[in-house]
Amino acid sequence: MKTTTNFKAAIILSVMASIMVACSSNKKPIATDTATEVAGSEVDFKIEKSGAQLWGEVCNRCHIAPSPADYNDTDWETISLHMRVRANLTEEEITKIETFLKSAN
């Protein structure tokens, strides 16, 4: 039983370590010319979501999306940092949502 527990722990450690290494760098990968062209064409066709759209999609995953008018800009900055970590949101998601909430309150 002990060996099994250690084995499972080792698997978890390996997976987590891989993710940490993969996620801890801000450096962008060096792309070849071909890859750059493909990436460029993909960017051209990528439809960027607005803050309002993300506000409707992301907040509703746990609770009803909040009314922008309920807090001022300063409060939304604090709440956004709190929710970024609590709900494990991407930087892009929370930045756009915060901008929308501050523009609509």
Partner: peptide, 24 residues
Amino acid sequence: VLNKHMTVRAGKFLLPFGTFMERL
């Protein structure tokens, strides 16, 4: 917030074991 993909927390925190206790 260490970088755009990583945040460190220390202290007493809600554990992300599933989602009910942490989020719901």
